[in-house]
Each structure stands twice: as C-alpha cells, then as structure tokens.
C-alpha cells in the first residue's frame, strides 16, 4: 500500500482540526478545541485502483503563543494551507507559513483551503485577495468543515497531486 504524509498548516482557529475530523470521521462540532503540538490521524483513500494510506499531521495553529513547528513537515508529501475566510489575519499568516514550508520541504504539492465557506457572507477576504493567491499559482479551494463542502475533494486532489509528483 502507498503511504503518504500530509500536514495541515495555518493560523490558530482556522479549522484545521475540524477539516480532519470531517474528512476522517465525517463529524463536525461548533466547539473550538485548540491543538497543542500535533494530532495524528490516518485514513485510507481509494485512488482508482490504488489504495493510499494517508497519515495526516494536524499541526498546532500559529499565533502569539508560538510559531508552527516547521520541523514536523519532514517527510511530508504535501500539505494543506488553511485560511479562515472570516479572519483577514489568517490570510497574512498563511502567506508567511507557506514561505517557511517551501523552504523546509521544497515545492511539494499543496492546496490553499479558504475555510468556513458556510460563513461566506461574513468573509473579510476580498475577491482581489483571493485572486492574488491564484495569481501566485496556488490551487485554492473554498471549504466548509461544517457542511463538508469540498473537504473530501480537497484531500483527494492533493493526494492525486502527490502521487503524480512522486
């Protein structure tokens, strides 16, 4: 079986743990539960005739309490960079984290997930800012851990990209 390591990166409270919970267990809770260190989950994805065993590293969000521990990216085949659409600050933080991530693991596949799409009416991010990400060549998805929109698809697309990259 193919083994792949995926990391979830982003500021605090952007919804990384909720995205993993939605993907792995198909559950969602409104209650915010902060992560300390890293939380590890596993899920097997069927990609055509291949089964891919994903180890998902959900890294503690970056904030004034501490920076993302980029060392945890070692061995990652790809990563999901999560941004909270309702919080402008998480956008700037994600740009900064992505630069550090690329330094650590090189140009492995990654997707930018603009999370909390169910709260799109309250988004602080403008179309111009979102377009600036695609202008950088990033693949951007609007996800909702609450409704499940685009969550499975994002993991599958990243996995596909990782398989093609290796």
């Amino acid at each position: 079986m193919i083994q792949k390591k995926i990391c979830l990166l982003g500021g605090h409270a952007v919804g990384k743990t909720s995205l993993v919970a939605r993907f792995v267990k198909s559950v969602f809770t409104e209650k915010y539960h902060t992560t300390i260190g890293v939380k590890i989950d596993k899920k097997t994805l069927s990609m055509g005739d291949r089964a891919v065993n994903l180890t998902i590293w959900d890294l503690a969000g970056e904030d004034e309490f501490g920076a993302v521990d980029i060392a945890y990216l070692r061995g990652a085949s790809g990563y999901l960079l999560v941004i909270d659409g309702t919080r402008r600050s998480s956008f700037d933080r994600a740009l900064n984290i992505q630069q550090r991530a690329e330094k650590k693991v090189g140009s492995v596949p990654f997707l930018a997930l603009i999370n909390k799409a169910d709260l799109a009416a309250e988004w602080e991010l403008t179309d111009t800012e979102l377009q600036s990400l695609t202008a950088l060549g990033w693949k951007v998805f609007h996800t909702s851990a609450k409704s499940g929109d685009a969550v499975e698809a994002a993991f599958k697309i990243l996995t596909e990209a990782m398989l093609n990259h290796s």
Partner: peptide
C-alpha cells in the same frame, strides 16, 4: 499536567479570538 496546559492554551486562544472579533 497536559490537561492543565491545554486549558491555558484553550482559554488564551479563545480570548485572542474574542479580541479579534471585537476589534473587527
């Protein structure tokens, strides 16, 4: 010990989020 640490982080981050929302 970890649970206590977690509570501190949880509270700190909740307050940080509340501050951010209020500022917005």
């Amino acid at each position: 010990g970890f649970d206590r640490l977690h509570k501190v982080f949880q509270k700190g981050r909740e307050l940080s989020l509340a501050h951010e929302r209020l500022f917005s």
